[in-house]
Design a protein around this nucleic acid. Structure first.
Lengths: 402, 402
DNA sequence: CCTATTTGGGAAACAGTCCTTACTAGAATG
DNA sequence: CATTCTAGTAAGGACTGTTTCCCAAATAGG
């Protein structure tokens, strides 16, 4: 009927808040004395001492043995317990799997890469991911408590599975990351599209920093788009928001056709696939001869059509273009030029990060791991999960939100 | 760098939480004894007594004088103080102004209507709104503490002003509701498009109840669209998300043209205006003769083009169609029929509410008023505003967020 | 009419939180 | 060696919310 009922006041809540303050302070810095924690959080020294004692008893925080050097009495340094575990960050593309383990400080403590031929198929991708995760798990004290996966295919928001869409290339193939990782990761597994992760990275640390409403367009082997609204990527009902391959736009001869057909008409697709032949496209677009200019113009017009639709529907503050060929200065210029003449032009910028999907996934993984650590400090029987997931049922293995 | 710092624990926070529980309980029911509040909130009786005493002293809660009848000792009923004030809800269309005063219980305590000729102009609209608000203010004890305005034109999200877009009709005209209401409303003024309010109403109580991702399309004198993502209307950078008049789609002869041009080509616009002539359209569409069928098909195809774009970009679970002519069964059928053959069909339903924009605005007004009341129970020097607005600066007069 | 029952409300005692203030322990500085 | 500075602790206070118990008042039932 109306807003959610306010939480019941209780002293336990205060204690949990104090513990959270202490834990977050120790996540920000590698080690701190109790006095430093007090200064950092604004909470009084005695209260901090209590909290540190509690957290030490719970095994979440340990005395490093180091002492302060300097003028006054020597203080003891505390840090997060090493066995708090790590978060797995994985990116899966047709080229291979990149996986990292990130600890609660945000440090990448391990990294593994494994190649994948384009002809690999879904099975090999799944086995490679499992192998890589298994290897990381053994190398990390405390194990992998959560995983965040980026995949170069559309992801079903509710199941976390990769899905095949008609007329869109299926780059990685049929894969259920949550199932694959079940044996090596103890907690929730989050899966999303690489384009969405890239958009989050651009929002957090790239070209769209501080911009809460923008559209990120990925132009590579696949065609993708992420819509950021009010500071978060909006995925839609099934997680398929931004799947623009089928959006109607202007084709080479000016008539309307789906975006992906434009590439077919230009002969820029891989044989027997709907994937774009990036090498062919880049050579077709390079140079200043007649043909290259024409191809650029055709592509810019087609993409501008998509951008115009996105602007009408989403009213972004800017448009960030990334992807293997999309972020080339020549393409950006052509798109910006063409799109600048549309009735509602919006600033167009090239993406500013390398491996943005890993960056975005890493940020989210860190957030999730920290939230798990903080929650593990609360004894039990406590509602209020940090990200609004219902505490009922045995907790889903795959969550796709945020 | 990462998530926001957790709030500092304090006893004041607990007390504020208790008071909020009590106030919300008294908002849900007209009057309650302390024992009933305790049962309702799950907080112990002595604590409730304390809180009620505090709130009575602050003038937020009063003893009604009534006593419980029944078995045991007579209890005292308490209720919200009558002078807590009300929220103004106003809808402005070319036809007139409808305004209500809503109290913290959610009851409509006053309602006023004022007609407005189509030739009224912005000045008259402003004066009428001011007059209506002034009248309501005098009739409501405690005055108007906030206002929520629905306007039949695009609204700038940051300023709350109505804006004119090229090739879109300017129905109400140049208006700054926050400025107009400054003298009769003491608190924040929220302004949004009628289409957005209607979408919120459909989400809250209409056809899209429980659906967190949908698209609402308004087909009336103007053409509008609201995108609901993750349970909230997403307005975009300037509040112009969903302004679809300029979106390219299929015209009568199959070539691409802006949606609004389709109506021009069909001769369904008002003279010397880009507004749709609803009467002409309805008569052109009615019946089963050749011409009516053709117009229906042309319109359905044009609208389906817009829906296809919205589906690609937003991945809604459903599409709700409202507006004077859009929600007619014949139009819904034609659109559903045509759109059902698109590559990613989505359920299409007619809007289910009458005066949805008022309903949506009323819900928001109630929420805002309640949040103001709850905040006024906290003495001062307290951060954590309920909707995440920075407490710096003297607080803006117009806020468009949610 | 009187008693048992039932219900709202209040008082007292308790447990727990955080804070302020003061103090102690210990190390470097001069 | 005295001074100075710092980390940590101890004691006491101010509050919160809860539990427990009791009282007052009104009804139901005999």
């Amino acid at each position: 009927m109306s807003s959610p009922p306010p939480p019941r006041p209780s002293l336990e809540m205060l204690r949990a808040l104090t513990d959270e303050n202490v834990l977050r302070a120790l996540m920000d810095r590698p080690r701190l004395t109790r006095a430093e924690i007090s200064a950092h959080t604004g909470i009084s020294k005695p209260t901090i001492s209590d909290s540190v004692a509690r957290l030490s008893a719970a095994g979440l925080v340990v005395d490093t043995g180091e002492r302060t050097a300097g003028r006054g009495r020597a203080g003891s340094y505390y840090c997060l317990a090493p066995r708090l575990g790590a978060a797995l960050v994985a990116s899966i593309t047709p080229h291979g799997v990149v996986a990292e383990a990130v600890d609660a400080h945000g440090r990448v403590v391990e990294q593994v890469r494994a190649g994948l031929g384009r002809t690999a198929g879904a099975d090999l991708a799944a086995r490679t991911l499992a192998a890589v995760a298994g290897r990381l798990r053994t190398r990390v004290p405390g194990g992998l408590r959560t995983a965040v996966v980026s995949a170069a295919d559309p992801v079903d928001r509710t199941t976390g599975r990769l899905v095949r869409l008609p007329d869109a290339p299926f780059l990685v193939g049929d894969l259920d990351p949550a199932a694959v990782l079940a044996s090596s990761v103890t907690g929730p597994v989050l899966v999303d599209n690489d384009v969405n992760w890239a958009a989050r990275a651009e929002h957090h640390a790239g070209r769209a920093q501080g911009v809460d409403d923008f559209v990120y367009v990925h132009l590579g082997e696949g065609l993708g788009c992420a819509v950021v609204h009010d500071g978060a990527v909006r995925r839609g009902r099934h997680g398929l928001a931004g799947e623009i391959a089928h959006l109607h736009t202007a084709g080479p001869d000016g008539t309307a056709m789906p975006l992906t057909e434009v590439f077919a008409a230009l002969g820029l697709r891989r044989p027997a696939s709907t994937a774009i032949d990036v090498a062919a496209l880049e050579s077709a677009v390079a140079g200043d001869d007649e043909r290259a200019r024409r191809v650029r113009t055709v592509l810019a017009r087609a993409i501008s059509g998509v951008l115009a639709a996105a602007v009408s529907l989403a009213d972004p503050e800017m448009i960030v273009v990334g992807g293997a060929w999309g972020s080339r200065p020549r393409m950006i210029a052509a798109i910006g030029d063409h799109f600048g003449h549309s009735p509602r032009p919006v600033r167009v910028a090239a993406a500013g990060l390398t491996a943005p999907e890993l960056t975005g996934a890493r940020t989210r993984a860190l957030e999730e791991l920290r939230s798990l650590v903080v929650r593990s400090a609360r004894p039990a029987g406590d509602r209020t999960p940090s990200k609004g997931r219902a505490p009922s049922s045995p907790a889903p293995r795959a969550i796709g939100d945020r």
